[in-house]
Design a protein around this nucleic acid. Structure first.
Lengths: 193, 193
DNA sequence: AATGCATGCAAGTACACGCTTGCAAGTCTG
DNA sequence: CAGACTTGCAAGCGTGTACTTGCATGCATT
């Protein structure tokens, strides 16, 4: 494996565990089984390593397609797809999400990148629910709030998995959680108030 | 105001912003308008300040009462109460929750204290939903998953407020979110599948 | 074989940080 | 007023850390 890859992986592992400021370049070098000077020759500075980590994960999810072109307008199907995609997004980016939370403010760009997907998804969900209301598929309701409820449910589940995994994991599996939550949620939005 | 109070407040402010390791004792002293040596005379060490911050917030919520003695067994009422209490818990402890997330692992006791309430609340909700099912108030369902859905919804909303406030706040207010979410959720658990 | 490149190694620099200490000044209490 | 206590101030100690540099070594390409 490439030297720089080993360094990035080592850094990711350590920063996830101890935070950016809690990890020294020497520790990263040792973990990567590399001399410290090599780290600087490759990345210039400690911050450079962090930037490389983020660059490697630039993988923004595409919810647009799921809720527009590919939408079946059967909410149970579409929302399950969205939740799967959201879940995938969390898995793929678990590393930088954790780092972004721990070391918020270290890299403004990271903050922005991480804050964006939820906002974007919220507005897409609003549009989606609006359409379903017009089509009388779901009851009349405040779509902003409905979208927020759904989003919070997914976000909350994923965040608690990320943050508290070692304490409370495996109360329920991801599969069953989403299956149950989506169907419960759909029942809620179908019925007339 | 007491010198030590000023120090604790200053430290809380700074640690929330920059993380424990991102804040120097000198910076804390300056922020508190106190000499650095005074900080050490009062708290012994930097870690001592952190412990004092946590001690000051030892304020564990009581969901037990809400879901047992005080329960009306009208889920709309009870769940709204629970959500209010949960929300209050987040507000009261916003400081140490944020610090706990940022500096996870710094203080094992803090990790534990913060991981506990959600787990506890989950098991209380499970009991509650079990009872309502036996009483035929709500449909038959897997109460573990139902509890998790509700909990994730509340947790997710509060966490995103805490973490991303500056980016996405005020899409919706807390009041309307909980009112809407609880009623949507209750519709979901009432209806027969 | 010669050249260039990536790396290891050892030493070192500059600085920030946690923490200590001795002394002087101010405040509060009996 | 005397004594105890708190604080400010200035200096300093030891350590860890980001980062640099010069040299030697091995490897690959030409």
């Amino acid at each position: 494996m490439q030297t720089s890859d080993r360094i990035i992986e080592a850094a990711t592992r350590l920063i996830k565990k101890n935070g950016y400021r809690g990890v020294s370049t020497k520790a990263i070098a040792t973990e990567a089984k590399v001399n410290e000077s090599t780290v600087f020759r490759q990345f210039g500075s400690k911050q450079g390593i962090l930037e490389a980590i983020i660059e490697r994960h630039s993988d923004i999810p595409q919810f647009e397609k799921l809720l527009k072109e590919d939408a079946t307008d059967n909410p149970e199907v579409d929302l399950l797809n969205v939740s799967q995609q959201y879940r995938l997004f969390f898995h793929k980016n678990a590393d930088i999400i954790l780092i972004g939370i721990r070391d918020k403010g270290m890299l403004p760009e990271l903050d922005r990148v991480l804050a964006e997907p939820p906002v974007k998804l919220h507005s897409l969900l609003v549009e989606y629910f609006e359409r379903l209301q017009k089509k009388k598929v779901i009851a009349k309701q405040d779509e902003r709030l409905t979208a927020m409820s759904f989003l919070s449910m997914c976000y909350g589940f994923q965040m608690s998995e990320l943050i508290h995994r070692q304490y409370q994991s495996q109360l329920v599996t991801e599969e069953e959680f989403y299956k149950h939550s989506v169907s419960l949620f759909v029942k809620g939005i179908l019925s007339q108030s």
